[in-house]
Amino acid sequence: MDLADLYRDVIVDHNRNPRNFGRLEHPSRAADGHNPLCGDRLHLELVLDGGRVADVRFDGKGCAISTASASLMTEAIKGKTLPEVEQLFGTVHDMLTRRDAPVPPELGKLAALSGVREFPARVKCASLCWHTLNAALAGDSAPVKTE
C-alpha cells in the first residue's frame, strides 16, 4: 500500500491538467454525479453519433483521483462504440474492485488507476465518472450518488 502507487505521475498530471474539461455546445446526453462523502461533483456531457462517442467533456470539483479518473475516461471512450464503452466499464470496474485480478493490457493509460484498489475508501472517487457515464448513456436525469 504505497502512496506512490496511488498518486502515479499519470494521475497527478491528469489532475493538474484535466483533458476534455469544460462543456459542449450541443451535447446529446448529459448527467451529474455526486459523492456526498467528500463533496465531489461531476458534470458529464456527450455527443453520440452513429452509435459512437463522438465527443465528451466534463467539469466539476473533485479530488485528484476523481478528476484524473474522469479525465482518463474521456480520453479512453472518445471514438468508441457503445458496446465497446460498456465492455470497458466492466474491465475498469474489475480493476478497481478486484485486488487479485491482473490488469489487462488493453486498459492502456487507465491502468494508472489500478493502485486505487489498495485504498478501499477511494474506489468511489475513481468510479464516480463511470457511473455518471452510465447514467448519461441510459438517459437518466436524476443525479448519480455514490452513497
Binding site: 500500500m1 502512496l3 496511488l6 465531489d40 479530488c63 483521483i65 475508501a121 477511494r122 472517487c125
Partner: peptide, 13 residues
Amino acid sequence: GVHPHDLGTILDA
C-alpha cells in the same frame, strides 16, 4: 491545489 480527500489519504500513509 490539494483536495481534502487526497490530503486525508496522504496523511493516513
